[in-house]
Computed example of a mutant assay.
Amino acid sequence: MSVGVPVLDADHKTLVGLVNNLHRSIGDAEEYATLGSVLQALQDYADHHFAREERVMEVCRYPSLDTHARIHRRLALEVRELKTRYDGDRSTVRAKDCLDFLHKWLFEHICSTDMDYRAWVVGHPEAASAAESVSLTDSRPGKAQLDWKALRILVVDDNVNFAQIMRTILEGVGVVDIRTAADLDGAKAILAGTELDIVVSDWHVGPESGLDLVAWIRRQPELAKIPVLVLSGHERVASRDVALSAGADEFMEKPISARGLLICLSRLARKGG
């Protein structure tokens, strides 16, 4: 359902997509890493989206802004509490335990509560610009905005669910050209035949190492300058220094933060450009 502001509708689509990602992760071998990333992304997007939504309601003089904001704060707090429980002891939080709650607040809030302000924002001349003024990556005023739609990104991960989380986050900011590979041979084939701006690779791609892919990229004259971000859910083995020494430009541990990921990719895109 549309609230009448394309940017807010896109946020809603991203939030629903993250819930769907969580549903698909149930029983997965990397369920805990997937759950952590989804919870962190939900927290990032909830805080960002609620601030964006409230800015639009403020500009459009929606009379129930205060009531709506209180609902936002309650929902955001519950997501943070879930994430805090997960951080404290992953075994106390399972994907299936979160779904009922997330479905309830996301779908009931979006399909019911958010529809209450629709009449106030549809056609309002400042609604779209107000929504766009609140950025998930907190770009500084006056700094040129990154054209996410122009980016071409390859995601290399043998975990289909995690690759889908990445796609959901990237599509949420407008990235259209997203390629995925589940092994190094597939990644090399895409790299050899496609112009790309950024490569995001898991450290462990099945039995293979993403660092071997990084080394291969750096040996190819036509690919050597492509920025590479390495991710890892095996923090005891992986380290930033090892990844960077292997040729990666950036390193992040799973579970990832959606905001942290986008800030990192923005930095890499500007570096590569």
Rank of each mutant, 00 (worst) to 15 (best):
R259M: 10
A187Y: 03
G172H: 01
L170I: 00
D157S: 13
P221V: 09
E171I: 09
V214E: 02
D241V: 03
R218T: 06
G210C: 12
D249I: 06
E235F: 02
D157Q: 11
L223E: 05
T194F: 06
S201W: 05
A182N: 06
A224L: 04
I263H: 05
Q164V: 08
S239Q: 03
I226E: 05
K188Y: 00
D202M: 04
P227H: 10
D157L: 09
Q164W: 13
Q164M: 11
E195Y: 11
N159I: 05
I263W: 01
A258W: 13
E235D: 08
L170H: 01
L244R: 11
G172Y: 04
D177Q: 13
W216R: 03
I169W: 02
E253F: 15
I178H: 10
W203D: 01
H234A: 14
D183G: 12
H234M: 14
F251I: 14
V242P: 00
G260N: 14
P227G: 05
P221E: 07
R179H: 15
D183L: 09
S239F: 10
G206I: 06
E195C: 11
M252C: 15
S257E: 06
A246K: 06
I178D: 11
H234S: 13
D202S: 11
V205C: 00
I165E: 02
I226F: 07
L229V: 02
V242K: 14
T168C: 12
P255E: 01
G193L: 01
L213H: 07
V199G: 10
V205R: 03
S245M: 14
G174R: 03
G247S: 07
V242F: 03
D241T: 08
D241N: 05
D212F: 01
G247Q: 13
E250S: 08
N159S: 12
A246S: 15
